[in-house]
């Protein structure tokens, strides 16, 4: 299990433009971090760098004090798009991704599909599903690989009320399982009953960290 994730003096430039400058952040097991800030503040870039999609110019990201390697566990990432094969069915998508992580288990897949309420649609091609359903399947994919670190980029957009409720439930479960979770959202209101660390960004800089936030 991943005990802590540390971002150390991470900077990134694209051309002459600074996207991220000297970000320092420490997340510990069970912690939920919520990135907030205006568009173009560097939140998505940071979450992608943590996921390992792309690299920074300076600084490093440490997993339990080490650079990310194959033994550090797995990363679950939910981006703006659903990242699923539209020509494959719901079940085939789940099978493919679980097999890629060597986590294939038909019982577990069935359980998860029931959980996200897609079991009935398991033979349907993903392209024929609605946006909300695709988003839910994306969540199920995240769960089937059972990652140590979960990264969500604006997960509430595109989900209906039930889907949002489901996501809240999943976040809570994962919090109890002591996983590290990072979430980008504008809708902090949906996290009212959670204890989380709010990390505010502005123009590529980390402006403020509010520990143990729970808007009760």
């Amino acid at each position: 299990m991943l005990q802590n994730l540390e971002v150390k003096k991470l900077s990134k430039k694209i051309g002459f433009r600074t996207i991220l400058s000297e970000i320092n952040l420490l997340l510990e097991a069970g912690e939920l971090a919520v990135f907030t800030g205006p568009n173009g503040a560097g939140k998505t870039t940071l979450i992608r760098l943590i996921a390992g999609l792309g690299s920074g110019d300076k600084g490093e990201i440490l997993w339990d004090g080490k650079r990310y390697g194959p033994d550090n566990g797995k990363i679950g990432y939910m981006g703006h798009n659903h990242m699923l094969y539209e020509a494959l069915t719901v079940e085939e998508n789940m099978n493919f991704f679980s097999r890629m992580y060597d986590k294939y288990d038909s019982k577990n897949i069935e359980r998860l599909l029931r959980k996200v309420d897609l079991y009935f649609y398991r033979y349907e091609q993903v392209g024929n599903l609605s946006r909300g359903m695709q988003q839910r399947l994306s969540l199920a994919r995240l769960l089937v690989i059972d990652p140590w670190l979960m990264l969500y980029d604006e997960p509430f957009t595109g989900l209906d009320t039930e889907g949002q409720q489901l996501l809240r439930q999943i976040i809570q479960e994962k919090q109890q399982e002591e996983r590290i979770q990072v979430l980008i959202t504008h809708k902090t209101g949906l996290l009212d009953d959670f204890i989380y660390k709010e990390v505010k960004f502005c123009q590529g800089k980390l402006v403020e960290v509010i520990e143990g936030r729970a808007e009760l």
């Binding site: 996921a51 390992g52 999609l53 797995k74 981006g79 798009n81 094969y85 890629m100």
Partner: peptide, 14 residues
Amino acid sequence: REKENDVIEALLLA
């Protein structure tokens, strides 16, 4: 087909 919906990112992570 990997470019559609950014599947390539999920595939890279996997």
